[in-house]
Nucleic acid binder design. Sequence first.
DNA 1: AAATCATACAACCGCGTCAAA
DNA 2: GTTTGACGCGGTTGTATGATT
Length: 252
Amino acid sequence: MGRAPCCDKEGLRRGAWSPDEDQLLADYIAQHGHPNWRALPKHAGLLRCGKSCRLRWINYLRPDIKRGNFTADEEDQIIRLHHSLGNRWSAIAAQLPGRTDNEIKNVWHTHLKKRLLEDNQKTTPGDGGRRQKKRKQKAKATKSAPVSVKHEQLSPGRSSSSVTYNSTVTETAAPVSSSPAITSASHQLVKEESFSSAVVTDDSFWFSTDVTGMMNLGSMEEELSLAPTRNEDMDFWLKMFESGDMRDLAVS
DNA sequence: AAATCATACAACCGCGTCAAA
DNA sequence: GTTTGACGCGGTTGTATGATT
């Protein structure tokens, strides 16, 4: 399949959106909707590619977006959903009204993943001294205090966000699904965290953490409408694996 | 006060998927 | 059945901001 170029980049603006551009886009969509993203910027008088407009609308301008303040409930929900779905951010976002996949992805990478890592470290002491090479240990100890962390951020034109994190959840990124998307996502996370933090150094990591005690996955799947699909996928890949078609791949 | 570093978020890029031609 | 075009998704990067030295 030939891939269509995203857009003709000649003469198109990139980077941060100006308030004027936001206004143009919002006004146009309010009036006409967005039946065709590719044609939209031209009609709206924007020097942006359609993809950029779509992203800006979905992640920022949409009126139903809830900004700032991820509640503790939302965070726990993200953690549970990520455990169940892997890096399927859009699927996770679908369960969190007003939140975008991009936002959730950012929160995961900046807050939650780190938090889980730290919590895991607390439960599995022993190699604590080796990884903390960062020189600003003191600052981090303050910022990522075990009990709660206050984070505030202000950006131009944005509402402030102030989130308090309670480190009550302990989790690892242990894969729980055999669906290809989920396993690959989970494996990627494992790889990423292994290399970036040098915490996960051997298999004992996965056995040292009480995953089932942390996540109520049974009720989770009942909540998720896509659970049956996941089970079917799981069956399919299990069969594939058991039949031997996948074993060679798994070994290599 | 300036320089440096870390963090968080917005935006971009590339690929996969799907529908229409 | 094949090609094309558009959309959506996830990964990655760029940059503004705040904290620390």
